[in-house]
């Protein structure tokens, strides 16, 4: 069997054209994952009664189930949810308009949100208590201390881990192809199905994933070095 290099090259733009939908799905999911993680992490850090335990249990539950299972669960649950919602607002249920994109976002956001919760918690705890105390001693409220002093440091500390999870999530969106969401991998599969040149199309997809992830990692590294320049002593040693 020979690799059809011509097809590989000619198919590259087709696969590449689906990159925006992969990025959209990734960013959308990452946004909600962060929201979820901030709620869970915040509840646990602030020891909000009941909510801290509830989020802890939910997170172990989410982490204990494979992403594929969560995607499939959301996929099959969507029609029921929509049917129920349509009945609630008095709309006619139309199976042609099921929000599968939303189902994929939900599954990805919960799954990654559970992991990112740990990043939020560990990064916040990594900020020295003295930073809170000197903010309080200056007369700041808890919220002012968080917003002006602690959170900016938490963001810098968490950036490398967040980037890793985002890259992982971006690749995780390829699983959304099993729930009817047309992203890059689905596009590659469809473009190859005429001539059965699946390997070529998948190589195209792999190359694009790789380049995108490399660019993200590079940009994040640059951002970390500039936003975290206060961590670097003149002799080049990094604190923390």
């Amino acid at each position: 069997m020979n690799l059809d290099v011509d097809f590989m090259l000619s198919d590259l733009p087709t696969v590449f054209a689906a990159l925006p939908s992969t990025l959209l799905l990734s960013l959308d999911s990452m946004f909600w994952a962060l929201v979820f993680a901030l709620i869970c992490g915040g509840a646990q850090l602030a020891r909000i009664p009941v909510l801290d335990k509830v989020t802890l249990v939910i997170n172990t539950f989410i982490k204990g189930i494979p992403l594929v299972v969560q995607l499939l669960f959301c996929y099959y649950a969507v029609p029921y949810a929509v049917k129920w919602f349509d009945a609630l607002v008095g709309r006619t249920y139309d199976p042609r308009h099921l929000p599968y994109f939303g189902a994929a976002v939900l599954a990805l956001a919960l799954n990654f949100g559970a992991y990112i919760t740990d990043v939020v918690i560990s990064s916040t705890r990594a900020v020295d208590r003295g930073q809170w105390e000197s903010a309080y001693a200056c007369g700041m409220t808890r919220f002012q201390a968080l917003r002006r002093v602690v959170a900016p440091q938490v963001i810098v500390i968490s950036l490398p881990n967040m980037t890793n999870y985002f890259i992982w999530l971006l690749k995780g969106t390829s699983l959304a192809s099993i729930v009817n969401v047309t992203e890059m991998l689905t596009t590659a599969r469809l473009s190859a199905s005429d001539g059965y040149q699946f390997l070529e199309a998948y190589i195209d997809a792999a190359i694009i994933y790789w380049i995108v992830c490399a660019v993200i990692e590079w940009a994040s590294g640059r951002l970390y070095r500039s936003a975290g320049r206060y961590l670097v002593a003149p002799n080049g040693a990094t604190a923390q």
Partner: peptide, 20 residues
């Protein structure tokens, strides 16, 4: 808060805002 804002503190380990 009102009382704290009448005071200021210098800590043993300085506790300057690291990122500022």
């Amino acid at each position: 808060l009102a009382q704290r804002r009448k005071t200021a503190m210098v800590f043993q380990h300085y506790n300057l805002f690291k990122n500022k």
